[in-house]
Amino acid sequence: MPVITAPHAFNEGNLFVDLESIFGYPLYLKCEGFNFAGSIKLKAANEMVESAERDGVLTPDSILVESSSGNLGVALSMIAASKGYRFLCVTDSRCNLSTRLLMEALGSQVHVVAGLDANGGFLGTRIDYVRSLCASDDRYVWLSQYTNAGNWRAHFRTTGPEIADNFPQLDVLFVGAGTTGTLMGCARYFRQWHRPVRIVAVDSVGSVAFGGKPGRRMIPGLGMSMRPPLLDESFVDEVIRVEEADTIRACHRMARRGFLFGGSTGTVVSGATDWLARHDAHDVTAVAIAPDLGERYLDTIYQTNWLQDLYGDQILDPAHMSTTASRPAERPDTPPPGHREEP
Rank of each mutant, 00 (worst) to 15 (best):
Thr99Leu: 06
Thr99Met: 10
Arg100Trp: 08
Cys89Lys: 09
Asn96Ile: 00
Val110Phe: 04
Glu104Arg: 14
Ser93Ile: 13
Ser132Pro: 00
Leu97Asn: 11
Val110Pro: 09
Asn119Asp: 12
Gly107Ile: 08
Tyr85Glu: 14
Phe87Leu: 14
Ser98Gln: 12
Phe122Thr: 06
Leu101Lys: 15
Leu123Val: 08
Arg94His: 13
Tyr85Ile: 14
Asn96Pro: 04
Cys134Asn: 01
Gly124Met: 03
Asn96Lys: 04
Val113Glu: 05
Arg131Gln: 09
Asn96Ala: 13
Ser136Leu: 00
Gly115Tyr: 03
Cys134Asp: 04
Thr99Val: 14
Gly124Arg: 01
Asp92Phe: 07
Leu133Val: 00
Leu88Asn: 07
Val90Thr: 08
Arg131Lys: 11
Ser132Asp: 12
Gln109Trp: 00
Leu88Ala: 11
Ser132Glu: 13
Gly115Met: 09
Ser93Pro: 15
His111Arg: 11
Tyr129Thr: 02
Ser136Asn: 07
Val110Tyr: 02
Arg131Phe: 00
Tyr129Gln: 01
Ala118Thr: 12
Ala118Gln: 14
Cys95Gly: 04
Arg94Cys: 09
Leu88Gly: 06
Cys89Phe: 10
Arg86Trp: 11
Asp92Gln: 09
Asn96Val: 02
Leu97Ser: 12
Cys134Ser: 03
Gly107Arg: 07
His111Phe: 09
Gln109Asp: 15
Arg94Ile: 12
Leu88Arg: 11
Arg94Glu: 05
Tyr129Met: 00
Tyr129Ala: 02
Gly124Cys: 07
Arg126Phe: 01
Ser98Phe: 04
Glu104Gly: 02
Gly121Ile: 02
Ser98Arg: 07
Cys95Tyr: 03
Asn96Tyr: 06
Thr91Cys: 13
Cys89Asp: 12
